[in-house]
Design a protein around this nucleic acid. Structure first.
Length: 420
DNA sequence: TCTGGGGTCCTAGGACCC
DNA sequence: TCTGGGGTCCTAGGACCC
């Protein structure tokens, strides 16, 4: 029998902000999305105030001030660094680990001797002591059940955030109490449709007729239902698979009207995407560029258009990619719209040894660019964008807003905390 | 009335996750 | 004034093939 654990950091971004600001313990804390757009992380105290996930910041600013809520722009450099520390700590305590997201990981505990509940509490205590971040642990025989165990740990505080759900009897008690919408893989749309069929709890889904689930919904949901029954359909992925597409997009800090500004932004995003491409040692041969106005504009002022571009040879060269993206931008730009965002998606991603090179390709094309490797090394040493294409401005007017950014406590020499 | 069946590949779009 | 970003998987449907 397999045993999986899901370890999840509580209100991760808020916990990171508190790490070097202990006076914030007990005080409600929220963290905003890019551009200070909406609330994406809430401490327990903030949730208790009724602040919803994803609510727009500008509509709630007064309420937040009134309740003395500490508000932060997202500081991804800090969160990524703290996340690495958490993962390394857990890695030393379990046989196999899959980093699932910035604040969650799976562990394979199959065959671990001793009390699993006690192991869960040990992990929790060590991460708290070594890194300072509170975590919850859910343990069971499938990933979907482990996820549900972790949900139970959050929902019933008496558990202390650790729930061992390997026992069939305990599963039988929990499943009828769990709303189907809290099952991993069941989102809003599916919840509504399932409820229409009288399937309202995890137990209902586990007991549903699998043929009907497959026919009316999908194989994906069938797999979820089977996992709730204890059939193991998902395994651990220790080495993260290479990305099949790489997206770079961002809302602008202010609306943008001119083609020239869009070109700057596009060049910046393509540069970032190409860096990610090279980080995984891949080449790409298609791009999709898009521009759009705000979703909340009146109908007649909304505009969205995208264009796919096929390259002659797979490449990882920022210069070629930027040139192609800018050529694609021109025909989809229309004057007179208030643009809020542009994006690039790199696709048809391959490894160098995965395709047949073109005998007639110009020298240097169709393989990793040595020049780009040099640029990456220089930028790693002297700071991102020390060397960059001329189209990328140093201080763009459209840059995202981060007015409430905390310090780079662990990632910038000049911003280290001072003691004494 | 009624028009083959089955396979592959590609793309667009939907749904989900964090 | 102001509403996130990055990713995966699956499905349906069209084109094409034998």
């Amino acid at each position: 029998m397999s045993v999986y654990a899901l370890i999840d950091c509580n209100s991760f971004y808020c916990s990171c902000e508190r790490l070097f600001r202990p006076e914030l313990n007990g005080r409600p804390v929220v963290v905003l999305s890019n551009n200070d757009g909406c609330v994406i992380a809430r401490s327990r105290e903030a949730k208790a105030l009724g602040i919803g996930m994803g609510v727009p910041y500008f509509q709630n600013r007064a309420f937040l001030r009134q309740h003395n809520v500490a508000v932060f722009s997202s500081n991804y450099e800090l969160y990524a660094d703290v996340s690495n520390r958490v993962m390394r700590t857990i890695q030393g305590m379990v046989p196999d680990l899959e980093v699932y997201s910035i604040d969650e990981c799976w562990a394979d505990l199959t065959g671990m001797p001793g009390d699993l509940d006690a192991l869960g509490r040990e992990i929790q205590a060590r991460v708290r002591r070594w890194v300072g971040i509170p975590v919850g642990v859910g343990i069971s025989t499938t990933k979907t059940l482990a996820k549900l165990a972790q949900w139970a740990g959050k929902t019933w505080r008496a558990t202390g955030g650790v729930v061992d759900l390997t026992d069939a009897l305990r599963q039988g008690r929990l499943l009828p109490l769990a709303p189907v919408g809290d099952v991993w893989g069941v989102g809003r749309k599916l919840t509504t449709r399932l409820q229409g069929l009288g399937i309202t709890t995890a137990q209902d889904l586990a007991r549903a007729d699998l043929r009907i689930v497959r026919k009316e919904f999908s194989r994906v949901l069938e797999r979820t239902a089977r996992e709730l029954r204890g059939e193991q359909w998902m395994r651990l992925h220790e080495a993260p698979p290479l990305k099949k597409e790489i997206i770079s997009s961002r809302m602008f800090g202010h609306r943008v009207y001119r083609l020239e500004a869009l070109r700057e932004a596009m060049a910046t995003y393509v540069t970032r995407a190409a860096e990610k491409l090279r980080e995984q040692g891949s080449l790409c041969s298609t791009l999709l560029v898009s521009v759009q106005t705000g979703q909340h504009e009146p109908e007649e002022r909304r505009y969205y258009r995208s264009l796919g571009i096929q390259l002659a040879h797979p490449t990882d060269d920022t210069r070629i990619l930027v040139q192609a993206a800018l050529a694609g931008l021109d025909p989809i730009y229309r004057e007179g719209y208030a643009y809020s965002k542009c994006a690039v998606v790199l696709g048809s991603i391959v490894q160098t040894d995965e395709f047949t090179p073109d005998l007639f390709a110009p020298a240097g094309q169709g393989r990793p660019s040595e020049l780009m490797q040099l640029v990456d090394r220089i930028n790693a040493r002297y700071g991102r964008a020390a060397l960059h294409v001329g189209r990328m401005p140093a201080d763009p007017g459209w840059q995202m807003r981060r007015e409430l950014l905390s310090r780079g406590y662990t990632t910038r020499w000049g911003e280290l905390p001072k003691v004494g």
